[in-house]
Design a protein around this nucleic acid. Structure first.
Length: 838
RNA sequence: GCGAGAGUGGUGGAAUUGGUAUACACGCUAGUCUUAGGAACUAGUGCUUCGGCUUAAGGGUUCGAGUCCCUUCUCUCGCACCA
C-alpha cells in the first residue's frame, strides 16, 4: 500500500544526474555527422514571477525528444540559458534602487531551481546569460562586424517612441500603434538613432524561407512583414519647377486614370509645392496631422483628410495637369511617400476624390459605375489610348517599356520592411562599442578593450530627452579616440533586448571560449539547430533578427550555414478555463459553482455561466503555478500531463481534473512495480503483440513529436499489465525504457528496482518486431451500400476470393443481400468489404 | 478589409494513402472494498421514438468522406490606408 513517493524519487535522481554530469555533451568526433543533433529551446527572460505552465510545455517536448535521440545513439546538444537584459529588472531598479543585475541574478537562480526540479536533461555546463560581460563581449564584437561592414548607421529620423518606457522602438515592437511591452500609445519622435540595415538582406530573408522546415504560418508572417512588392517608379514633371515627383505604383498601367497626386505631410517637397494662396491651409493641416498619433492616422474607419498644395504635376503619358494634394493617408515610410491616385479603381483614392470633388476616370472596363463606387477587380483597359484592349499583365509590361523608353520611370521593387532601429535610451543593455571623435568621426572600440562594460550609475531613470542614463557618468563617457588620441565621447545608447538573443544559439556551442565568439570546428560540428521549439510571439521579432545576424556572420565566413534554425515548431498556448455570463463578461473562477455536471452558476447571483477557455490572468483567478503541482504531485506528472493534454502545437486549456488522470497513471505504474509479482518469464502471444505494438507506436509518435498519442499507448499497455496476476519482468523493463524520456525520475527508479545500473538514459531505446505486431486474424468489416452490416474474422492477408467467399456465407450479410442484385464488390485487404446491391 | 489556422461526446482530445468515427483521459451512473485517499477495483456511458441518426451548416465527387472540392457560419491568431 505504498503511495508513489515522487518527492523522494525525483530529488534522488536529480541529485544523481547533477553529480554524475549525466547529460554533459562533448564534441565526440567518432559520432558520424548525421547522428549529431542540436535541440534548442527559446531561452526565457528570467522574470520575477518565475516559470509559468507555458515554459515546461516546450521544454518538456524538447527534453523528451533529446532523451529519445540519445537513447537512439545520437550525440545531442541540449542547452539552456537566460535572456537576461530587459526592461522589468530595469524598471524595478528605477523604483527601488536595486541594481538590475541583483534582481536578474536572483530570478535566474529561481528559474534554475525550477528548471532543475523538472528534471530536464540540459548540459548545465553550457549555461549562458546575455547580461554576463563574458557573453556580451561577443555581442559587442558582432555589432562591430556589422558596423565595419557598413550595416550599422546613425540617423536622425522620426521613429516610434514609447513615452512610458522612454525609449525608441523598432517597427516590429509596435503592435496596433501601442508599445508591445507596456501597451502605451506610441508617438513619433525625431531623435538620433543607431539603425541596422536589415533591408539590405530583405531578398535573402525572403527567399531562404523556402529552405526552412518551419510552420507555414510563421513563414507567411515573415513574408508579409518583409512585404516585397513589384511595380514601377514613375517620374512626374512638375509645373513651374525643375524638380520631378517620384511615385511608386504596382499599377502603372492605370496611369491614364490618375487624376490627382498625393504626397505625405512629411514629404520633403511639401513646402516647395505649397503656393502662396494655399500656404495658410497647408500649414494648418500639417499642424493637425502632427498631433495625431500613428493609430489615429492609420485608423481605416476614419474619414480621409487632406489639403490642396496649389501645384500641379504633368502626367507623362498624356500631358494632363494633375493637382497635387497633401494627405496623411499616404505614408512617408512606404515607397516614396507620394502616390498617383486612380480613384476609379482604388477604394481609398475613390473615397478621397468623392470628398474633395476630384475627377474619376474609368480606365479598366468595370461592371459598376465608377462614379458611384470604385471598381477594384481586373478589367480590360479602356480610355487608355495605346493600352486599350489589353489585360493587366500585358498593359503593365507595355507601360513599363514605355516609361523606360521615355526616361520617365522604370521597373521597381518595394519592401514593407524598414531598417531596424537598434539603439535604446536605457541603462540595462549592452553598451554600443562606439566612440565619437570630433576629428575621426565615429570609431569602434578596439577589440582588446571589449567587453565594454556597463558603468555603475546612481540613477537608472532614462532622461526622457532621448538620452540614456549613461550620459550622467562623465568618467565613462569621456574617453580618448582610439585612432588619434583626441578627447572623445562614448556612445551612450544601449542595444535592444533582441541583440543578445540574436546569436545565443551559437555561444552554447562554445560558451567558455575567451579568444573568439565560437570555435569554427565546433560550429561546424553542431550547426544548424535541428529543432527549435518556442511560442509564436517571436514569429517576426527574434526569428527575423537572428536570421539577419546569422546571414551577416555567414557572409563574413564566421558560420557555415545560411540559416540558423532548420526546423521550427511552435508550441500552442496553455490556456485555462473561465466562466462567461450571457453578456459575454468573464467571472473569476472562485465566484463560480458547479451545480451539476457541466452546469455552472455565478455563486452570488445564481446566473448561469458557460465554461470557456481564456488566457490565464490574475483577475480571473485561473493562473496555474507549476511549482504547486510539482510539490503536490511531482515533476513527472507535470511533464506527462503537459504532453498528454493534446498536440504540442495546439493551444489547450489546463484542466486539473485531467492532470489527476496522469498522476493516477503513474501511481498505478508504481503499484504494479512495487506490489505485483514480477517474474522473469515468457510472454504469452497476445501480451507480446501488445508490447511490440506499444514499442512501435511510442517510438514513431515520439519521433514525430506526437507525444499525446504515445502516452495513450503507454496507458493501454499499463492497463493490460495491471490485469495480470504475475507480470513478466521484460514488459516492465520495456515500459521503463519507453517512459524514460517522458517521466525520467520514475523510470530511473523502476530501472533500479528491476535490478539494473543507472542511468536508464544511457540505455538503448527498445526495438520492435514488425512480425509480432501483426494480427494472425483480422476483423473484416462488411458494408452493404457503404453501411456497416456485419463483421467477420479472417486470417491476416487472406486472398480476396477467400474473403468474398466468407462474406457470402455470412448469415447477416445474406439477410441484407437476399433478393438483390450485386452490382459491385470492393475488397480492402485486412480491412473491409463493401457490397453494392440494387 | 487582407492573410493564416481551427470547428468531432458533458470536457481535453484519437482516427495510415479517403476504408469500423469517438482510442486514451476526465466527468458521470451503479456496485465492491477500505488503512476515508483528490484512493483502488468491477460494470456502464455519443444521440435515439430502437427504424435509425451523428464529426459547425448546406451541397458535391466516390462503392465509401471527419478526411477531397464548392458555398455559408462561428472562433482564434497575425497584418492593417503598403499605393
Amino acid at each position: 500500500m505504498s503511495k508513489y513517493p515522487f518527492n523522494e524519487i525525483e530529488k534522488k535522481w536529480q541529485k544523481y544526474w547533477e553529480k554524475n554530469k549525466t547529460f554533459r555533451t562533448i564534441e565526440d568526433e567518432s559520432v558520424p555527422e548525421e547522428k549529431r543533433k542540436y535541440v534548442l529551446d527559446m531561452f526565457p527572460y528570467p522574470s520575477g514571477a518565475g516559470l509559468h505552465v507555458g515554459h515546461p510545455e516546450g521544454y518538456t517536448a524538447t527534453d523528451i525528444y533529446s532523451r529519445y535521440l540519445r537513447m537512439n545513439g545520437y550525440n545531442v546538444l541540449h542547452p539552456m540559458g537566460f535572456d537576461a537584459f530587459g526592461l522589468p529588472a530595469e524598471n524595478y531598479a528605477i523604483k527601488t534602487g536595486t541594481h538590475p543585475y541583483t534582481t536578474t541574478k536572483k530570478n535566474m537562480e529561481n528559474f534554475t531551481r525550477q528548471l532543475k526540479s523538472l528534471g530536464f536533461s540540459y548540459d548545465w555546463d553550457r549555461e549562458i546569460a546575455t547580461c554576463d560581460p563574458e557573453y556580451y563581449h561577443w555581442t559587442q564584437w558582432i555589432f562591430k562586424k556589422l558596423f565595419e561592414k557598413g550595416l550599422a548607421y546613425e540617423a536622425s529620423t522620426p521613429i516610434n517612441w514609447c513615452p512610458s518606457c522612454k525609449t525608441g522602438l523598432a517597427n516590429e515592437e509596435v503592435k496596433e500603434g501601442h508599445c508591445e511591452r507596456c501597451g502605451t500609445k506610441v508617438e513619433k519622435k525625431n531623435i538620433r538613432q543607431w539603425i541596422l540595415k536589415i533591408t539590405a538582406y530583405a531578398d535573402r530573408l525572403l527567399e531562404d524561407l523556402d529552405t526552412l522546415d518551419w510552420p507555414e504560418s510563421v513563414k507567411t508572417m515573415q513574408r508579409n512583414w518583409i512585404g516585397k512588392s513589384e511595380g514601377a517608379a514613375v517620374f512626374f514633371k512638375l509645373e513651374n519647377f525643375d524638380d520631378t515627383l517620384e511615385v511608386y505604383t504596382t499599377r502603372c498601367d492605370t496611369l491614364f486614370g490618375a487624376t490627382y497626386m498625393v504626397i505625405a505631410p512629411e514629404h520633403p517637397l511639401v513646402s516647395k509645392l505649397t503656393t502662396k494662396e494655399q500656404k495658410a491651409a497647408v500649414e494648418k493641416y500639417l499642424e493637425d496631422t502632427k498631433h495625431k498619433s500613428d493609430l489615429e492616422r492609420t485608423d481605416l474607419a476614419k474619414d480621409k483628410t487632406g489639403v490642396f498644395s496649389g501645384s500641379y504635376a504633368i502626367n507623362p503619358v498624356n500631358g494632363e495637369r494633375i493637382p497635387i494634394w497633401i494627405a496623411d493617408y499616404v505614408l512617408i515610410s512606404y515607397g516614396t511617400g507620394a502616390i498617383m491616385a486612380v480613384p476609379a479603381h482604388d477604394d481609398r483614392d475613390w473615397e478621397f476624390a468623392k470628398k474633395f470633388g476630384l475627377p474619376i476616370i474609368e480606365v479598366l472596363k468595370s461592371d459598376v459605375d465608377v462614379q458611384t463606387q470604385a471598381w477594384t477587380e481586373d478589367g480590360i483597359h479602356v480610355n487608355s489610348q495605346w493600352l486599350d484592349g489589353l489585360n493587366k499583365e500585358d498593359a503593365i509590361n507595355k507601360m513599363i517599356s514605355w516609361l523606360e523608353e521615355h526616361k520617365c520611370g522604370h521597373k521597381a521593387v518595394n519592401y514593407k520592411l524598414r531598417d531596424w532601429i537598434f539603439s535604446r535610451q536605457r541603462y540595462w543593455g549592452e553598451p554600443l562599442p562606439l566612440i565619437h571623435c570630433p576629428k575621426c568621426g565615429t570609431v569602434a572600440v578596439p577589440d582588446e578593450e571589449l567587453p565594454l562594460t556597463l558603468p555603475e550609475v546612481t540613477k537608472y531613470e532614462p532622461s526622457g530627452t532621448g538620452e540614456s542614463p549613461l550620459v550622467n557618468v562623465p568618467e565613462w563617457v569621456n574617453t580618448k579616440c582610439p585612432v588619434c588620441g583626441a578627447d572623445a565621447k562614448r556612445e551612450t545608447n544601449t542595444m535592444p533586448q533582441w541583440a543578445g538573443s540574436c546569436w545565443y544559439y551559437l555561444r552554447y556551442i562554445d560558451p567558455k571560449n575567451k579568444d573568439r565568439f565560437i570555435d569554427p570546428e565546433k560550429e561546424k560540428y553542431w550547426m544548424p539547430v535541428d529543432l527549435y521549439v518556442g511560442g509564436t510571439e517571436h514569429a517576426v521579432l527574434h526569428l527575423l533578427y537572428s536570421r539577419f545576424w546569422h546571414k551577416v556572420l555567414y557572409d563574413l565566413g564566421l558560420v557555415s550555414t545560411k540559416e540558423p534554425f532548420q526546423r521550427l515548431v511552435n508550441q500552442g498556448m496553455i490556456t485555462s478555463f473561465a466562466y462567461q455570463k450571457k453578456n459575454k463578461s468573464l467571472v473569476p473562477v472562485d465566484k463560480v459553482s458547479e451545480i451539476s455536471p457541466g452546469k455552472f452558476i455565478e455563486t452570488e447571483t445564481g446566473e448561469e455561466v458557460t465554461q470557456v477557455t481564456a488566457k490565464m490572468s490574475k483577475s480571473l483567478k485561473n493562473v496555474i503555478n507549476p511549482d504547486d503541482f510539482i510539490r503536490d504531485y511531482g515533476a513527472d506528472s507535470v511533464r506527462m500531463y503537459e504532453m498528454f493534454m493534446g498536440p504540442l502545437t495546439e493551444s489547450k486549456p489546463w484542466a486539473t481534473a485531467g492532470f489527476m488522470g496522469v498522476y493516477r497513471f503513474l501511481d498505478r505504474v508504481w503499484r504494479i512495480i512495487t506490489e505485483k509479482n514480477i517474474e522473469d518469464k515468457e510472454l504469452d502471444k497476445e501480451l507480446d503483440k501488445l508490447m511490440n505494438k506499444t514499442i512501435k507506436k511510442v517510438s514513431q509518435d515520439t519521433e514525430t513529436l506526437n507525444f499525446n498519442t504515445a502516452i495513450s499507448q503507454m496507458m493501454v499497455f499499463v492497463n493490460e499489465l495491471n490485469k495480470l496476476e504475475t507480470v513478466p519482468k521484460k514488459t516492465l523493463e520495456i515500459l521503463a525504457l519507453l517512459m524514460s524520456p517522458y517521466t525520467p525520475h520514475i523510470a530511473e527508479e523502476m530501472w533500479a528496482l528491476l535490478g539494473h545500473e543507472p542511468s536508464i538514459s544511457k540505455e538503448k531505446w527498445p526495438t520492435w518486431d514488425e512480425k509480432k505486431c501483426l494480427d494472425d486474424e483480422v476483423e473484416i468489416v462488411v458494408q452493404i451500400n457503404g453501411k456497416l452490416r456485419s463483421r467477420i474474422m479472417m486470417p491476416h492477408n487472406a486472398e480476396k476470393d477467400a474473403v468474398l467467399e466468407a462474406v457470402r456465407n455470412d448469415e447477416k450479410t445474406k439477410q441484407w443481400t437476399e433478393g438483390k442484385t450485386i452490382v459491385k464488390e470492393i475488397v480492402v485487404p485486412n480491412k473491409l468489404v463493401n457490397i453494392v446491391v440494387k
